[in-house]
Amino acid sequence: MKLPKEVMIAMSQYNLIIIGGGPAGMATAYSASQSGLNKILLIERLPKLGGILNQCIHEGFGLHYFKKELTGTEYSAKYSALLEGTSIEILTSSFVTGISDNNNVTYINSNGISTVSGRKIVLATGCRERTREMLTIPGTRPSGIYTAGLSQEMINIYGQLPGKRVVIVGSGDIGLIMARRLTLEGSAVIFLLEVRPTLAGLIRNKIQCLDDFNIPLLCNHELLEVYGKNRVSGIRYRDNTSHQEHYIDCDTLLFSVGLIPENDLLKATPSSICNGIRLIGNAEYVHGLVDEATKEAEKLGKEIAKELIL
């Protein structure tokens, strides 16, 4: 029987394949390599390693791991420099489309479709933000509604301003960071609406990003409806303590209402091999600090190396 061409090509075998080149993926690869494991492949969808760190130009990273206060971009650069000179194979601009039987990992990049096989597979695919649609907030669906992370990418990577009069929904850390960032860029951040009675993010972020800039955080406040035909024109919200409803004009609505581990690859993976795949970093659970994700990933890398080198 003649096999199709793509099946006849000898498949590359790896000891360890890590999907996702953010801090957790880099750390898993690095520590496994430092523990003596060879044939490690790190696959990253973007052109550069570092993941979401690359759009975090604020400080607050690395205090535990590098014993030094760094920006996200510095942390990313410092950690990816560790990978240089190791035998880790790094594939950037490559997107994993599926994991199948026999631990085969298929990815797509500008060279075409390739399949590689790994004795161990680690998913370090980070997390994604909850969106307005997921909360099914009623109202219109105009332009000007973004997740806090998208607004961060707009400003820090592309130098574009999402809007001038901004309301932030939720009080997650990215929302707090973006309240300050937008203020520094000249936008007016009217307030943050938090449906719960207390802050969702870190206290230090509230002090440095809201209090220092006199940006109000309204707890027990709920977004009720979005207005605006083409671009956001305002919102209706309710103070759940007094039960009073209010309307305010704004042109931008940013959502910082929680992060969800991004492990969707597993949902399409045969259950027979799902159990063998390890999740790490924010793909496992959402971490408060990158330093913690790095430490856990280094621990995992070490464990895997130990297991495989036996």
Partner: peptide, 26 residues
């Protein structure tokens, strides 16, 4: 199919660059 993808990407490598990860659009 894999072979159709490879043929297209060989012709135009932009079809190998995923932009929308949820729906796998290049």
């Amino acid at each position: 199919s894999v072979s159709a993808k490879n043929t297209l990407i060989k012709k135009d490598s932009d079809f190998g660059t995923i932009i929308c990860r949820c729906e796998e659009v290049t």
